[in-house]
Simulated assay, not measured.
Amino acid sequence: MTRLLTPLLLLPLFIIGCAQPQRMERELGDFDLTLGTSPSRSMAQGLIQPARIGAFHGGFDLTHADGWYVGGWAPSMGVRDESLLELNAYAGVFQPLDERFGYELGVIQYSLPEIDVERHQFYSGLTLNDHQLGAAVTYAADRTDGTLLLDLALANPFGLDLRVKLGTHLLEQPVMIGTRPIDAFEDWSLSLSRPWNGARLDLSYSGTSLQGAGCAAYSGQNAYCQDFWKLSLVHALF
């Protein structure tokens, strides 16, 4: 399956290589095409957010007017000695039932072609206004994970965009850390964002219930297992 998807995922590579996030959107009949160096879609309405791994990354998203979509995301092109090529592809459908409520279903394939590693994730999500509740099951050769995630957009009187994510992850096969089995863990994140002089200022914090050696069992949504703060200033070039 990876060999079939690889040519499709090579489409956005001509825009990859700029450290600043960029995005280009075009209408193609009944389709909306997005190319960018930042993820164009948060699958399952906030459940699965593809993270970039290195300086060279990018992807595309093709969405039909009826709500179904396909896309690809390469979080790492493997151009550095310490990095591996990763190609991810997804397909799904998002259906709004009214102006406030909607649902989403889909599947993602994660692949590392250089070391012949693949995993598949089936996801679903419910949206109420700007709040989301999502669930996913991930299948890999040596483990199966289940995830339940709550994503809340909170009002703030200071003009800040405030989001809180809370996740619970269940492992079908416990990961042994010494003599201690780990079959579940939680993670969370808080992000603050606001426009500033034509750019966007972001402050985020993430953490998990795992610490130290226990981080070997981590497979959640955060970029890092242990407590992590990040401050960034982003200005789109187009």
Rank of each mutant, 00 (worst) to 15 (best):
R41P: 09
F60E: 09
Y103G: 13
Q49R: 15
I108A: 04
E27C: 09
Y110E: 04
L28D: 06
V93F: 02
Q22M: 04
E104P: 01
W73M: 07
R23H: 01
Y110P: 11
Q22G: 07
L112S: 11
A89G: 14
F94K: 14
P39R: 13
Q109F: 00
R100F: 01
S40C: 03
R26T: 12
E86I: 14
F60M: 13
Q109N: 07
G29Q: 08
I108P: 02
L9Q: 09
Y110L: 04
E25F: 01
A55R: 10
A51R: 15
A91K: 03
S83D: 15
V79L: 15
G78N: 14
A89N: 04
T37D: 04
Y69D: 01
Y103P: 08
R100P: 03
L10M: 12
L84R: 15
A91W: 00
A51I: 07
L11F: 05
L11G: 06
L62S: 05
G71Y: 00
S40A: 14
G46M: 01
Q45Y: 00
E86P: 10
L9H: 07
Y110A: 04
D66T: 14
G17T: 07
I53V: 15
I16D: 11
T34D: 07
F94N: 13
S83M: 14
L13H: 11
L35P: 07
A55Y: 03
L33G: 09
F56D: 09
G29R: 13
L35A: 04
Q45C: 02
R80T: 14
V93W: 05
M43N: 08
A51M: 06
R23V: 08
V93G: 08
Y69W: 01
W68G: 03
P21A: 01
Q22A: 06
E86D: 11
G78D: 14
L8T: 06
D98P: 10
Q20T: 08
G67V: 08
L11H: 02
P7N: 06
P113C: 06
G92Y: 01
F94D: 10
W68I: 02
S76L: 04
H57A: 12
E99Q: 13
S83R: 14
Q95N: 10
L105D: 02
R100K: 11
T6H: 14
A91D: 01
Y90G: 05
G54R: 08
